[in-house]
């Protein structure tokens, strides 16, 4: 395999990883701070993508659509929190799984009713279309570069907020000992709401920037939700830094695995066996990684300090 192909795969892996981080960041905070399993986090990614589609149709401008979608995703997240999630914080994980499962079913069907079951696409904005010449033989789409940059910028901003601001300090404290934070006079309900809204907005943002790359379809959030769970388990529940490292790791392993597993197997086994097993093994890699981490290092690579198991 040529070096330039490898480089493209790495960039694709990085781009997928950044996308995963945007989704996993909200998921890990909601999970870590509130102890809340939100299966509906994946549909917020889908909601973001559909919002982008709708606003592009409405306004004709991609950038305008991005901002409008972010605002709507935030409002939508807060609305869900107010209507449903707020009543589930004290409940068992099983109840949370069940209720959020119901929300997935509802929103997937709603997307199908409003936009039809067919896949939709939107074009990237003009100034981000085209591709860059990296080396003599290698070109890479500008839009994918832009998503990597945007994702990394958000990651940096989030890291700064969580590490150096008062609200970030409260979030970290809330993840460790919510009772103590509440006893010190912090409005923990409002803190939860902020974390939840921001998480929903980040997942929506991931959906928006993924919209021009992947197909928009009902149920698009289901599989990425599971991968996002893999990410937060590998990284350590409640840990933003862990989610970042794990997201990039999972993105790279998954992307490289899908292209290389068949080739790697055909070195040892015959071609037909490799063709048959390769794709399945590639899909399994991240789950094998998660299971290994859970057995060897149950709290993840970079566990948040003091989070109860």
């Amino acid at each position: 395999m040529s070096l330039s192909l490898f480089l493209i795969l790495c960039l694709n892996g990085l781009q997928y990883g950044v996308l995963l981080f945007l989704i996993a960041a909200g998921l890990t905070l909601v999970f870590g701070v509130m102890g809340f399993i939100n299966l509906a986090h994946g549909v917020q990614y889908m909601v973001g993508a559909y919002l982008a589609f709708a606003y592009v149709q409405l306004t004709g401008s991609f950038m305008l659509a991005v901002f409008l979608s972010l605002g709507t995703a935030l409002v939508f997240g807060l609305l869900l929190e107010y209507l449903v999630f707020r009543h589930l914080y004290g409940r068992s994980h099983l109840d949370q799984v069940l209720a959020t499962f119901g929300i997935i079913i509802f929103l997937n069907e709603l997307a199908k009713v409003l936009f039809g079951p067919a896949t939709l696409t939107i074009a990237p904005p003009d100034f981000l279309s085209g591709s860059i010449q990296l080396t003599e033989t290698l070109r890479y789409p500008v839009y994918r570069f832009a998503t990597i940059v945007a994702g990394l910028a958000v990651a940096l901003g989030l890291f700064f907020i969580v590490s150096y601001t008062r609200i970030g300090m409260l979030i970290r404290a809330g993840a460790t000992t919510p009772e103590m934070v509440s006893a010190l006079g912090v409005n923990i309900q409002r803190l939860f709401m902020i974390v939840f809204g921001v998480g929903a907005m980040l997942a929506g943002f991931a959906g928006v920037i993924a919209a021009p790359i992947f197909a928009i379809e009902p149920g698009m959030g289901d599989n990425i939700l599971i991968v996002a769970f893999v990410v937060i388990i590998i990284g350590g529940i409640g840990s933003i830094g862990g989610a970042f490292v794990a997201a990039l790791l999972v993105g790279l392993i998954d992307t490289l695995g899908r292209s290389l597993a068949t080739t790697a197997l055909s070195v040892v086994f015959d071609a037909s066996f490799a063709n048959q097993v390769g794709p399945a093994l590639a899909s399994m890699l991240i789950y094998i990684l998660m299971a290994t981490i859970l057995v060897v290092r149950p709290k993840g690579l970079l566990p948040a300090k003091g989070v109860a198991p």
């Binding site: 449903v84 589930l88 409940r91 109840d95 069940l98 209720a99 499962f101 119901g102 929300i103 997935i104 079913i105 509802f106 929103l107 997937n108 069907e109 709603l110 009713v113």
Partner: peptide
């Protein structure tokens, strides 16, 4: 499913 989903939430 538009009815079934909210029904699950209400049951919980």
């Amino acid at each position: 499913r538009l009815i079934y989903g909210p029904l699950l939430v209400l049951m919980v």
